[in-house]
């Protein structure tokens, strides 16, 4: 069995009195797509933001490449090679595509920002992802469609030779063709050897691209199993009831928020 690239152990997180994550174990393997599924409010986005270093965790360990690491913010996580594409896309509407892709990590020369390098690399990355729908890399992000924004956000994550990419509901707002493109992209990232985490509500998408499935139920891990061992209806049961056959939380009725 391959070692996980990124692993959380026993993570708890509360917002005030609301206990959102309970002793969550979560692992991401290189070259695999791990689907993180769960109902609305199950805590998926919160887990992603903890991995991203946006939220601190109340308890639990953060391991990367087999070693425990301390992360104190988005910068530390990015330095590990972990990139996140957020559900609420983190793009600045007033900046153009290149500026967004390099935000916070701008290339510079002695004379200031190195627009030449940045524009060239942005264009190369978009081309390597076979993005065809964007007219100009100097277009402001405000002028892009939902699918194009999603593509820019993913391209931004890929630009950095990252090792782990997390995508929080990347296809939720997309049409059929754009969803197809994004799923192909997700598969291609994993085939490059990256650890990919995909959050999605679409079971078809999940079963198509995922290698592993981790199901969250009210902030608890209900199952963490290879995708091929699960059927569509089993996943739905895990999501809605926290149990399916002998899989799942022992007694979901006692699980409270």
């Amino acid at each position: 069995m391959v070692e996980p690239l990124l692993e959380l152990r026993g993570v708890n997180k509360s917002f005030g009195v609301v206990h959102v994550l309970h002793d969550v174990d979560f692992a991401v393997y290189p070259g695999q797509v791990t689907a993180l599924v769960g109902d609305n409010g199950a805590g998926k986005s919160t887990l992603v933001k903890i991995i991203a270093g946006i939220y601190g965790r109340d308890s639990g360990e953060y391991h990367f490449d087999g070693k425990a690491v301390e992360v104190h913010g988005p910068r530390d996580v990015a330095a590990l090679g972990v990139e996140v594409v957020y559900q609420d896309l983190a793009l600045c509407d007033n900046l153009d595509i290149v500026e967004n892709m390099f935000l916070g990590r701008e290339e510079t020369t002695r004379l200031g920002l190195d627009e030449v390098t940045m524009e060239t690399r942005a264009r190369e990355t978009l081309a390597s992802l076979s993005v065809r729908t964007v007219k100009s890399v100097r277009q402001s992000v405000a002028s892009l469609s939902g699918g194009q924004r999603q593509t820019v956000a993913i391209a931004k994550a890929v630009l950095w030779n990252s090792k782990v990419v997390l995508l929080d509901e990347p296809t939720a707002a997309l049409g059929v063709a754009q969803t197809r493109q994004v799923l192909d992209l997700v598969r291609r990232l994993a085939d490059r050897g990256l650890g990919v985490v995909l959050i999605s509500h679409n079971m078809g998408d999940v079963l198509e691209v995922a290698d592993r499935i981790t199901a969250l139920y009210l902030g608890r891990v209900a199952a963490d199993v290879p995708a091929k061992d699960l059927t569509h209806s089993q996943i739905v049961e895990l999501i809605t009831a926290g149990r399916s056959g002998d899989l799942g939380i022992a007694d979901p009725a006692t699980a409270t928020v």
Binding site: Y86, D88, L89, C92, L95
Partner: peptide, 19 residues
């Protein structure tokens, strides 16, 4: 300068970008 525009455009996005 770039970060000023970013914070003005979307402070949360800027924060997530490590600014």
């Amino acid at each position: 300068g770039r970060h000023l525009y970013a914070v003005g455009g979307n402070a949360e996005a800027a924060r997530r970008a490590g600014i």
